[in-house]
Amino acid sequence: MRLRLQLFEFEDLPWFPSVIRAGMMDYLRFMISALRTYQPIVPLLREGLQATGQRRLLELGAGAGGGTEGVALALRRYPELDQLRVTLTDLYPQPAAWQLLAQRNAPVIDFEPAPVDALAVTPALTGFRTIFSAFHHFAPAAAEALLADAVRQNSGIGVFEGAGKHWLEILLAWTVLPVAQLLITPFIRPFRLSRLFFTYVVPLIPLFTIWDGTVSILRLYPPEQLLALARRADPDQRFQWQAGRARHAWGPQVTYLVGWPKVNSYT
């Protein structure tokens, strides 16, 4: 599917209730972790970390931290990355969800409690930048600015979306995934009565999840568009870029863009 529609997602709207947004993000984190969505891109991140000499991932737009734990633990199995650390950041921080991840994985995962703008990251926050399941939220101009900020600060970056942008994924978002959400919600941690209320009594979380999940796929940048954004963000060709789709052995795909400074571009 090459079509990209810049529709809106409710979770992006400033007025959207935080309790509903948190419930949606908690579900997304649970599913990404349970399905090991981002395991196919571990070798790509390993290559980027080796090329840049970084031993910290700086996750932008972290949401509830979906995918972070599995990817970090997989990377730390490599001897050269056994000291890897991860810092979670977001424009809308979720310290309650992050605290759970940090405690369970101390000292591997920590977080920045203050809002962080992915388009202008403070230089004090260093590391190889990652964006899981969030890059599609940015319209082309903002997406280009996000990549340009990484280039300007000479920071490697990886953009990862847990879909291959296929019509079948939209069908799943309307059929299988809502049923799964109803089944797994009681097992999501941290436990929240509000999550149960807005899932089973007033089912706003499932309804908004269906809409945002569908729009996410329609807004997702295919690999050729990701590369075009990267080239505009890096007009001097300081970085080496690659984009594509990584596939799970059991079928699902991850769309990705990774880039890091060329050898003669390091500061």
Rank of each mutant, 00 (worst) to 15 (best):
A145V: 00
L45E: 06
P113I: 10
A72K: 02
A134E: 12
M31I: 13
Q39L: 11
Y78T: 05
P235T: 11
V263G: 02
F138A: 05
V176M: 11
M1Q: 13
P79H: 04
Y78C: 04
R129S: 09
E9W: 06
V71W: 06
Q6P: 01
T122H: 15
A145M: 02
Q242W: 07
A233M: 12
R29Q: 06
A163H: 13
G213Y: 08
T37W: 08
L119I: 07
W211S: 06
H136G: 05
F191I: 02
Y78M: 05
A64W: 05
T267H: 15
V215M: 09
A134K: 09
I109T: 00
Y78E: 12
R231K: 11
R85S: 10
R245W: 06
E224N: 13
V179D: 03
L146C: 15
V151F: 12
L101R: 02
E80K: 05
L57M: 07
L28K: 00
K262Y: 07
L177R: 15
D26A: 14
V71Q: 06
G66F: 14
T122G: 15
N154S: 14
A102L: 04
G65V: 06
L204E: 12
Q240H: 10
A22H: 08
A22W: 03
Q240Y: 02
L3D: 15
L57F: 06
P40Q: 04
L73I: 08
L58D: 06
V151D: 11
G70A: 10
A145C: 02
P178N: 07
Q153K: 03
L229A: 08
F197P: 00
Q237W: 06
F132C: 10
A62F: 03
P222A: 11
N264D: 12
